[in-house]
C-alpha cells in the first residue's frame, strides 16, 4: 500500500500532503495565539492599572532575542535553499546554526525568567506578569518543539537524504514553515508585551 502524493504534489491542488497538513496546523496555531491575544487585549482594556512593558521587562535583552530569532529564520531558509541545490554539507551548517540560535534564544529567555523570579515577580503577581509568562512560556515551548524536530532531522532523520532526497527536502520545507511561524508570533509578542 502506497499513500499517494507524499512526495510529489497532487496536480489539482499543487501541494504534497505534508505541506497542506502543516498549513492547516499553522491555521489552528493562529487561532490558538489569536485567542491568547484576544485575552490579553480584553484584560488590558478592562484593567484599572497595567504597567508599560518597558517599565518592568528587559527591553535590550528582548531586542537581542528578537534579532536571534530573525537570524534563525534566515538560516532556516538558507538551509532549505542549500538542500534544493543539492549541497548537503552547506545545508547541515545552516541547519546547525538554526538549532544553535534556537538554543541561544532559550538561554536568554531563561536568564530573563530567572531575573524576574529573583525580584519575586511570579505569574501570580498581577495580570501583566500572568500574560507575560503564559504567552512567552507557550512561545518558548514552540521553539523547543521546533528544536527537537531540527535535531531529529540533523540526526537520525538525515538518513532519508540518501534514500529519498525529495521527501527529505519536503520535510525541511515543512519544519521551516513552522519555524518561521514561531518567529512571526514573536514579532507580534515582542512589541505587545515589551514595548507598549
Amino acid at each position: 500500500m502506497q499513500i499517494p502524493y507524499t512526495v510529489e504534489p497532487r496536480p489539482d491542488t499543487g501541494l504534497y500532503n505534508a505541506k497542506l497538513g502543516v498549513w492547516l496546523f499553522l491555521a489552528s496555531e493562529v487561532m490558538l495565539f489569536g485567542a491568547l491575544f484576544s485575552a490579553l487585549i480584553l484584560l488590558r482594556t478592562g484593567a484599572t492599572s497595567w504597567p508599560h512593558g518597558y517599565e518592568v521587562l528587559n527591553v535590550p535583552l528582548a531586542t537581542i532575542n528578537t534579532m536571534v530569532l530573525i537570524t534563525s529564520s534566515v538560516s532556516m531558509v538558507m538551509s532549505w535553499a542549500a538542500l534544493r541545490l543539492g549541497d548537503f554539507g552547506k545545508y547541515r551548517k545552516w541547519m546547525g546554526l538554526t538549532f544553535l540560535l534556537g538554543l541561544i534564544f532559550m538561554v536568554i529567555k531563561t536568564i530573563e525568567y530567572a531575573a524576574k523570579f529573583e525580584h519575586h515577580l511570579y505569574p501570580s503577581h498581577d495580570n501583566f506578569m500572568a500574560t507575560y509568562f503564559t504567552l512567552t512560556g507557550l512561545h518558548g515551548l514552540h521553539v523547543l518543539g521546533g528544536m527537537i524536530v531540527i535535531a531529529y532531522l540533523l540526526g537520525p532523520g538525515s538518513k532519508m537524504w540518501m534514500t529519498e532526497p525529495e521527501r527529505y527536502t519536503n520535510r525541511v520545507e515543512v519544519i521551516g514553515l513552522y519555524w518561521h511561524f514561531v518567529d512571526l508570533v514573536w514579532i507580534f509578542l515582542f512589541p505587545t508585551l515589551y514595548l507598549l
Partner: peptide
C-alpha cells in the same frame, strides 16, 4: 507598533514562508 509588526510579519510570511507564490488552496485556508 502594530503597523511595524504587521510589515515584519508580512515580510516573513511572504518571503520566508514563500506565501508570495503559494497555491490557491493555502490562500483559501
Amino acid at each position: 507598533a502594530l503597523f511595524i509588526a504587521s510589515i515584519k510579519g508580512s515580510l516573513v510570511a511572504a518571503f520566508f514562508m514563500h506565501l508570495i507564490s503559494e497555491r490557491r488552496l493555502v490562500y483559501a485556508v
